[in-house]
Design a protein around this nucleic acid. Structure first.
Length: 232
DNA sequence: ACATTAATTATGT
DNA sequence: ACATAATTAATGT
């Protein structure tokens, strides 16, 4: 696809920090950039992991389908992150689908370059470990939450995670900067969209959040932190 | 304490 | 007008 990519695209991104201009050039020459519409898939669960990706702009999430057709959102992928890095976990097919939430621009590399990249670019390897480590830590937290916390606490925890990952400061609070539905939040916190709807309505009345269709603004993050505590 | 079902209303193309 | 999203109340486990 579109080939004329500038080195500055990568220069500021964690996986490529500290690389020389010439190295960035080499990396970019191997990449193809692609645009995805909201609602499309970058790749599907179970398909051969032929490429790995970097999200330049937009928003993608990793999700999996249970046998009864329910979706579970595993994690969110904000711009600047690597994804589809199945090889980093010793897999040769993708363990989850990458669903495009907001129109996105990605860079894609053939997976055969994975080992060479790890060998040749220490910063790339380091950031991969950091990314995998962060996701692992995140999953540990979530397992604890699902095992021990009540629904309101799980919903507030999920929302707080989004605030930290993808929060954008606005006049009246911190907005989640990609489209998010009640259904989405329920799939992240292991509950139903109805419970999420009721909970958000209560929080709205309390002035903690403000929400419209597919938008959530957190006005009092601190109150959410309190609600995420086991005591209440 | 929370899910499910169902009916109703709002919102975006 | 039509589909998707959100709310709300009632009922079920």
């Amino acid at each position: 696809m579109g080939k004329l990519l500038d080195e500055s695209l990568l220069a500021g991104l964690p996986p490529f920090l500290g690389l020389a201009r010439e190295e960035l050039r080499q990396i970019l020459d191997e990449a193809v950039s692609q645009r995805f519409d909201a609602g499309s898939n970058v790749f599907a669960e179970g398909s051969p992991a032929a490429q790995f990706f970097l999200l330049l702009d937009g928003h993608v999430r990793a999700q999996r389908t249970t046998r009864n057709g329910d979706q579970v959102i595993l994690h969110q992928i904000p711009p600047g992150e690597l994804f589809g890095i199945a090889r980093a976990m010793g897999l040769d097919s993708y363990p989850a689908s990458a669903v495009v939430v907001a129109e996105s621009i990605v860079l894609a590399w053939p997976m055969r370059l994975w080992e060479p990249f790890m060998d040749r670019f220490p910063g790339f390897a380091k950031d991969t470990f950091r990314t995998v480590g962060a996701r692992m830590h995140d999953k540990n937290d979530r397992i604890m939450e699902i095992a021990t916390l009540a629904v309101e606490q799980r919903i507030s925890s999920a929302l707080l995670r989004l605030v930290n990952q993808s929060g954008r400061k606005t006049a009246d609070g911190i907005e989640i900067d990609f489209p998010i539905t009640r259904q989405d939040l329920s799939e992240m916190s292991g509950t139903t969209l109805h419970t999420v709807s009721r909970t958000l309505s209560a929080w709205e009345k309390a002035g903690i959040v403000h929400s419209e269709r597919k938008r959530i603004i957190v006005r009092q993050p601190h109150q959410l932190v309190i609600l995420a505590q086991p005591q209440g």
